[in-house]
Design a protein around this nucleic acid. Structure first.
Lengths: 203, 203
DNA sequence: CTGACTTATGATTCAGTGTTCATATTGAAG
DNA sequence: CTTCAATATGAACACTGAATCATAAGTCAG
């Protein structure tokens, strides 16, 4: 009988208070370390050292280095979406919502510069998680845009193309004006972008 | 006497035809392998196997894995810029140039999907080369935009913010509509984007 | 208190891989 | 031809770091 080597399962969730704390600490340490120096350069030893525990303990909570990373990517997605949803919640119309959303995203990035390192590296380490991250975003985005078009708040057009175009702008602007160079007047950046988006480039 | 361990130099360029061919083959193999599976996952053995030579030969032409990669990033930058400059050369005005530029970029990406893997991973492997890649791009872009504004071809505004915003759009649109999903009508994508860029989102 | 389960330890294993090196082959100048 | 620098080889080396495991310590319900 060939023994079917069963695909390993993720370790069960911690049952005690102590365990929950350790697991959470491990996640925070992983975010800090991987966000700082990148996935490839981060060793399990780095992460457990940061968390203040022994190396072996890591494997009580996560099956592999890959697994923490995936969880981190998913967490980043939830965090970002939550933050943006909140920031945009009571905007009177879509254009205002877009403006506030971009402004909030730049602020989010500025105060959490680890985000890009994690999400970007997911492209190689966990391609499916990477795609999910952006696809989930884009879906919500596109829904909002097409609802707004139906309401006549913006001109009609492909909500999907627009959503990805706008996301792309936000990502690159964040990297350039909130991470590479800090202390930039982000309101100015948002104003410039929306001048273009609202009125077009035409003279 | 402490012997100052002199920083290694890059191997000299090949002197014979044979050497030039081998080096070029190595670069092409590196592009193929790293572009396909990423820098971290690529071994020197993978690259030399692809190139059809022995492992040791690699080090006759490159000092390290890191070094080929850097050269690849620089090469990608030159290639992309050359392609775009060509595509945009005889556009009658800036808006047309922008449109043709985006269209050409999407086409370029579609037929050279290794580009993104290489450039994106440079963010971690060779951060300076990564920044250069985009900064050189953005500089040229911004110059064109501010010249056009001076000519009255577009409304005035921060050329730098616009340049990065437009670059960001192109990058993300390329990933979504030229890499993730192939066979998309790229002209349609460009039309949608330029409807927004020329006339704005307002109703 | 106690015993069973959960959590923690860190030395050890083990495979992968970047780089080196002694040796061999090639090819073109003289 | 000869000769020598350039080029090629692939086995061996050195090192890293993910994952394991036998053992110990802590925690908590009953």
């Amino acid at each position: 009988m060939a023994d079917v080597p069963p695909n390993r399962r993720s370790p069960p969730h911690p049952r005690t208070r102590r365990g929950k704390d350790t697991r959470a600490g491990l996640l925070r340490a992983a975010e800090a370390v991987i966000g700082e120096i990148g996935y490839a350069a981060s060793s399990i030893a780095d992460i457990t050292r940061k968390a203040g525990i022994a190396q072996g303990t890591f494997y009580i909570y996560f099956q592999s280095k890959d697994e923490v990373f995936r969880e981190l990517v998913v967490e980043m997605g939830r965090l970002t979406r939550g933050f943006l949803t909140e920031a945009v919640a009571d905007a009177p119309d879509r254009l205002t919502a877009e403006r506030r959303g971009l402004r909030a995203f730049l602020a989010f990035v500025a105060e959490r510069p680890t985000l890009y390192n994690i999400v970007t590296e997911a492209r190689f380490v966990a391609p499916d998680a990477y795609r999910d991250y952006y696809t989930v975003f884009a879906r919500g985005y596109a829904q909002n845009l097409s609802a707004a078009a139906k309401e006549g708040e913006i001109r009609s057009g492909s909500a999907e193309v627009r959503a990805w175009a706008l996301m792309g702008m936000a990502i690159t602007l964040g990297e350039r004006f909130a991470i590479w160079e800090t202390g930039i007047d982000l309101d100015m950046v948002v104003d410039e972008v929306f001048d273009m988006l609202e009125r077009g480039l035409r003279p």
